[in-house]
């Protein structure tokens, strides 16, 4: 599914990410944890071909992602507000994204209907521009848009921050559902060790751009992670 070989990224000679090899098979929920500056977002940006690797490459379905459009058909992602088009109202944005994945108006309406709970009645039908929504609601809009194209791979950067407690619980349930029902490959980074151990079957710890732990989640994983990050 996702294959990383000898991937390196350096800025002005300083290596910020160095992953010798990593394979994420179809249907795996992959959690990425690490302190600020560990290279989590850089790694996601490299997978999404938003920055150029200094060395090595990322392949999705045996095709390199670099300067390629193919992987975009099967990948849904939300890293930050740059992934939103903030001068549109949510409906316009969902419509736009839906059309890119060849959805009909009916498909989109039906899909949004299932998201009503997640939005908690605050987003749809409000006729507000996305830029005028709170950070939490913007995040919800971004996550929903990432799912709109029925992706096989979902990439989310810190999806739980800025969400209210109910939405965090809903999102967890929701991600677990997607895994079970659609066997979706998920890459999720988080600072919250609780959440990430609940959602992900495999957890990788990054530190200063290097993989320092690669764990299959079990009952002791949370303790192990807490021990690792304790100062």
């Amino acid at each position: 599914m996702i294959q990383v070989t000898n991937l390196q990224k350096a800025y002005n000679g300083v290596t910020v990410l160095n992953i010798q090899g990593l394979k994420i098979p179809q249907g795996e929920s992959f959690g990425l944890v690490g302190n600020n500056g560990a290279g989590k977002t850089t790694f996601f940006r490299l997978i999404l071909d938003l920055i150029e690797p200094s060395n090595g490459e990322v392949q999705i379905d045996d095709h390199t992602v670099m300067r390629n459009d193919e992987w975009k058909k099967t990948t849904g992602s939300f890293l930050d507000e740059g992934f939103l088009i903030d001068f549109l109202i949510p409906e316009e944005y969902f419509n736009f994204v839906g059309k890119l994945y060849h959805k009909t108006d009916g498909d989109i309406t039906e899909f949004l209907e299932t998201m009503k709970d997640f939005f908690n009645g605050e987003v749809l039908g409000s006729k507000k521009l996305i830029r005028d929504f709170s950070k939490g609601n913007q995040k919800k809009i971004g996550i929903v848009a990432a799912l709109l194209g029925d992706p096989k791979i979902l990439i989310l950067d810190e999806p739980f921050t800025a969400l209210d407690p109910s939405s965090q619980i809903r999102l967890k349930r929701f991600l677990n559902d997607l895994q079970l029902k659609f066997n979706m490959t998920m890459l999720i980074s988080s600072h919250d060790l609780n959440h990430v151990t609940e959602v992900c079957k495999r957890i990788v710890v990054l530190e200063k751009g290097l993989i320092v732990k690669d764990l299959q989640t079990n009952a002791d994983t949370l303790k192990e992670l807490e021990a690792y990050f304790a100062v």
């Binding site: 999404l48 938003l50 975009k72």
Partner: peptide, 14 residues
């Protein structure tokens, strides 16, 4: 520029 990442990761061939 403010939504460039959005355009680059969606299903839009260059």
């Amino acid at each position: 520029s403010s939504h460039f990442d959005s355009l680059m990761t969606r299903n839009i061939p260059i």
